[in-house]
């Protein structure tokens, strides 16, 4: 008997939770705000689903309801991806060490 592929994905899921748990505990508290903005950006990888939905079908039915929802999701996720990564970068640039005595 073969193992259902769902079980594989579920294993990845559970192991990722543990990876996340240990990785996030090692994040320094002063970077908790960038942590939130970057997690925001990466969770927008949901855009891959939206792209597939948006690209489905041919010229006649490109504006089917499912395509339109795909386009809208692409739009929303893109705001998040660009906004999230860039604002994180902007914040991280500001964290500077004390300058050595001049």
């Amino acid at each position: 008997m073969e193992i259902d592929p769902f079980i594989f994905r579920f294993s990845i899921f559970i192991l990722s939770i543990f990876v996340g748990y240990y990785v996030v505990w090692s994040v320094t508290p002063s970077l908790h705000t960038p942590l939130m903005s970057v997690t925001n950006a990466i969770s927008s990888v949901i855009i891959v689903g939206a792209i597939i939905a948006g690209l489905s079908g041919d010229i006649k039915n490109i504006f089917e309801t499912s395509n339109i929802f795909g386009f809208l999701a692409i739009f929303l996720a893109a705001i998040n991806i660009f906004g999230g990564f860039l604002v994180t970068q902007r914040m991280l640039q500001m964290y500077k060490k004390k300058k050595k005595n001049k």
Binding site: V24, I42, V45
Partner: peptide, 14 residues
């Protein structure tokens, strides 16, 4: 999609 599953789990636990 593995990328989404991994990310979802990371963000969820974070």
């Amino acid at each position: 999609n593995t990328a989404l599953i991994i990310t979802g789990a990371l963000v969820g636990s974070s």
